[in-house]
């Protein structure tokens, strides 16, 4: 197992994902992630020298919209599943900073 996920890495990934993990959850995540990386290692066995990175499999480009407003008031649908709402907006725990 070349891919040992350290405690710091799990802590850091938790911060990025805004997740608070219990000790057992951290251990489980460490194990899962090591396995995922081991799978990726299999792909790394391929020689990709000189191969252009690909982000799309279809040879399609330049798909555009014209700049014309066709959407109407979408607030009802947008807020339909909001757990809490106030003054036409989503109500969330106070978030300060930027």
């Amino acid at each position: 197992m070349a891919n040992i996920i350290s405690d710091e890495t799990i802590e850091y990934i938790g911060i990025l994902a805004k997740l608070e993990l219990s000790e057992e959850e951290k251990e489980r995540a460490k194990k899962d992630m090591s396995e995922m990386l081991a799978y990726m290692d299999q792909l790394n066995e391929l020689d990709t020298d000189g191969v252009e990175p690909m982000s799309h499999i279809f040879p399609v480009s330049n798909v555009f919209r014209e700049d014309v407003v066709t959407n109407t008031d979408g607030s009802k649908d947008t807020l339909f599943n909001a757990p809490e709402k106030k003054d036409g907006g989503f109500l969330v725990p106070k978030t300060i900073g930027s």
């Binding site: 700049d67 407003v69 066709t70 959407n71 008031d73 979408g74 607030s75 947008t78 036409g88 989503f90």
Partner: peptide, 26 residues
């Protein structure tokens, strides 16, 4: 622009909250 970058919602200022939204921009 009159519309958003990836959907046909209006970019106009001053709309009531969330009136210029659709599944794409949310």
């Amino acid at each position: 622009t009159k519309t958003k970058i990836f959907c046909s919602c209006s970019t106009a200022f001053g709309g009531a909250p969330n009136t210029h939204t659709c599944p794409v921009c949310t």
